[in-house]
Design a binder for these strands. Structure first.
Length: 635
RNA sequence: GCCGACGUAGCUCAGCUGGUAGAGCAACGCACUCGUAAUGCGUAGGUCAGGGGUUCGAGUCCCCUCGUCGGCUCCA
């Protein structure tokens, strides 16, 4: 049999017999590679290990070390789960079952509603399938054949319909389950080292709330039990850091059933933290040429009609009627956004090009009637405060303004030690504004990112209808990402409110408007910080920076004096005066994650010093009050 | 809004197939006055989320509402 020649990733070439598969190639290279082989990559496309090679193919062997390996494993796991479901519920029809971050899911329709207890039975069945080391058998058919094969399965029919005419459609068969699937899969089910079904949920077919609701099972899968255990440990770590739990334990905020969903109440310590962050950011904004404004929380409906919210954002707004007397009744709306207020400030005077750019910021509390199912502690609430700003500028100023915003983003994230990435969203199908404006604005965003040497991804067509935007996603201490800052160009509002400025040529022109938040929602950002720091805030953020701990009652008076003198330097200090042993007070302070504990006993009173215990380092010895205050304030 | 689970003391939770509510921590009181992560004893604390229904009897079963949790969706 004649040989064919394939190229390997390192540039070398290998001769294999005609008809050889990826697995044959792996075997020819080495038995250990063949053992580890999961799939192949031919000319950049993932293929099954049984795929027959052609002369000239560039072939890479995919093993569990490859970046694609987990995706492959999880996709195969989804099929195994589907087979288990099909075996237990023969009437099941299936939607889609992709691999996702950390796992997989499959959507399906069966006659009964599953309960969490049913997951165990499915897991058991999956374990059997895995033990049997079943293969995923690929077959190729035409669209017509595929329609026949999946007769009676409306979901697969719909998916098949959407495939391009004439395309070869592949299916994978494994036990009782046959699926429309591009593939590839791992060589056999035995390669799934460890898996666990995580949760049961409802999901609309194709994410569309007007379509049927399917059942969805989420699972996770790994090559080894250890990897699974590590993953479960990470989930537990995230639970320990949950801001809702820590918010209660650290007495930062609460939620009350009677107050209404999504309306958190901030306790003294939580409020203090929000104000610390706010004041820090305010000073930074002043330094960067912003001016603060304060605008109303409610406007007459006319404002919302002008802005378009009345027509387009109504379901998300709180409206109410007021009897003004004399038979006049007015509609008012509580602001879901700050833009109209800032625009009215801009509009209040004739503006000249000399006034631009005009940077107005506000810590603006807004209310949005979010759907009842989406609330999540501080992360998703109905009332929250944006660190909002609107920049009114000329088109050729956009670039520099965006650079300045990115610089601010970088500074702010650096303070908290967040790494971050950027995404640019471009013109969607439905949009307003001229193509030139879109192009100019999008280019300005991109070039600003480039000028700062930042990498970015493009979300094609994902911009708002009124302009392109940059989204910033940051990565917290345990690797989770959060979308915070948004820099958004707005072609809509300048139009709607008909705002203009005088150019150098004494003509009227429409300013560009940039909308941006750096933290996003102050409260949500606090939630992110709680989870990022696991409640153990750096001293500058900590609501209580130090507690003074008397060893015995006779030291109380001196403790009060210590507290008063430290408070005079601006430190936030409490005395733990309860009649408990010192070690109990230390335990409580540690639990409250207070950065410093100042122990005062006979020796300290005598020398007018405190014994400093640092939260993480323990006892660091005696210090004078001035030195202590200085060390904290400088930290 | 939709699907599912859940809601018992301030917190964490127990309470079998219906028989009239319990623990630990916290709180309060008393004793202890203590040297770097939890002293002992005692007291008090619940319209079992709210409303309706079934039943001789409901924390437990059914319905509605509110809220929470996990998803979906939305995010001008």
């Amino acid at each position: 049999m004649p040989d064919i020649t394939v190229k390997l990733p390192d540039g070398s070439e290998k001769q294999v017999p005609e008809g050889a598969t990826v697995l044959d190639l792996a075997n020819a290279i080495g038995p250990r590679l063949a053992q580890a082989a999961l799939a192949g990559k031919v000319d950049g496309a993932l293929v099954d290990i049984e795929r027959v090679l052609s002369d000239g193919d560039v072939v890479e062997i995919v093993t569990d070390k490859s970046p694609e390996a987990l995706d492959l494993l999880r996709h195969s796991s989804a099929h195994v789960m589907a087979e288990a479901i099909k075996a237990l519920h023969p009437e099941a029809t299936f939607g889609v079952g992709p691999s996702i971050e950390d796992g997989f899911y499959y959507d399906f329709k069966i006659d009964t509603q599953l309960t969490p207890a049913d997951l165990a039975a499915i897991e058991e069945r999956m374990a059997q399938i895995i033990a049997e080391e079943r293969t995923f058998d690929r077959a190729e058919l035409t669209k017509l054949e595929a329609h026949d094969l999946f007769e009676g399965d409306p979901f697969k029919q719909e998916l098949i319909d959407e495939l391009p005419e004439g395309e070869i459609i592949s299916i994978y068969r494994e036990g009782v389950f046959t699926d429309l699937c591009r593939g590839p899969h791992v060589p056999h089910t035995g390669r799934i080292g460890a898996f666990k079904l995580m949760k049961l949920a409802g999901a609309y077919w194709r994410g569309d709330s007007s379509r049927p609701m399917l059942q969805r099972i989420y699972g996770t899968a790994w090559f080894t039990q250890k990897d699974l255990d590590d993953h479960l440990e990470r989930i537990e770590e995230a639970e320990r850091r949950d801001h809702r739990k820590l918010g209660r334990e650290l007495d930062l905020f609460s939620l009350h059933e009677n107050a209404g969903a999504g309306l958190p109440l901030y306790h003294p310590k939580g409020a203090r933290m929000l104000r610390i962050i706010q004041e820090w950011l305010r000073q930074e904004l002043y330094r960067r040429g912003y001016d603060e404004v304060i605008t109303p929380h409610v406007y007459k409906a006319d404002v919302w009609k002008t802005s378009g919210h009345w027509d387009n954002y109504r379901e998300n707004m709180y409206f109410f009627q007021i009897d003004e007397g004399g038979g006049h009744v007015n509609d008012y709306g509580i602001k879901p956004m700050n833009c109209p207020g800032h625009i009215m400030v801009f509009q209040n005077d004739l503006r000249s090009y000399r006034d631009l750019p005009m940077r107005l910021f506000e810590f603006g509390t807004v209310y949005r009637h979010e759907l009842s199912g989406v609330m999540h502690g501080l992360m998703r609430a109905r009332g929250f405060t944006q660190d909002d700003a609107h920049i009114f500028c000329m088109p050729d100023q956009v670039h520099d303004e965006v650079i300045a915003m990115l610089d601010l983003v970088d500074y702010v994230n650096g303070v908290f030690g967040f790494e971050y990435t950027a995404e640019v969203s471009t013109k969607p199908e439905k949009s307003i504004g001229s193509d030139e404006d879109w192009e100019h604005a999008t280019d300005s965003l991109k070039s600003a990112l480039e000028a700062r040497g930042m990498e970015y991804e493009i979300n094609e067509g994902d911009g708002a209808f009124y302009g392109p935007k940059i989204d910033i996603k940051l990565r917290d201490a345990i690797g989770r990402t959060w979308q915070t800052a948004t820099i958004q160009v707005d072609f809509n509002n300048p139009e709607r409110f008909d705002i203009t400025y005088r150019t150098a040529e004494n003509t009227e022109a429409r300013p560009f408007m940039l909308h941006r938040t750096i933290l996003g929602s102050m409260e949500r950002f606090l939630g992110i910080l709680i989870e990022h720091y696991a409640g153990a805030f750096p001293a500058w953020l900590a609501p209580v920076q130090a507690v003074v701990i008397p060893i015995a009652d006779r030291h109380l008076e001196h403790c009060d004096s210590v507290r008063a003198r430290l408070a005079a330097t601006g430190l936030r200090v409490e005395v733990y005066a309860d009649q408990e042993p010192m070690r109990v007070k230390i335990a409580k302070a540690q639990q409250q994650k207070v950065p410093y504990m100042l122990v005062v006993g006979d020796k300290e009173v005598e020398a007018d010093v405190v014994s400093v215990r640092e939260r993480t380092r323990g006892d660091i010895g005696q210090m004078g009050l001035d030195d202590f205050a200085k060390s904290v304030l400088e930290a």
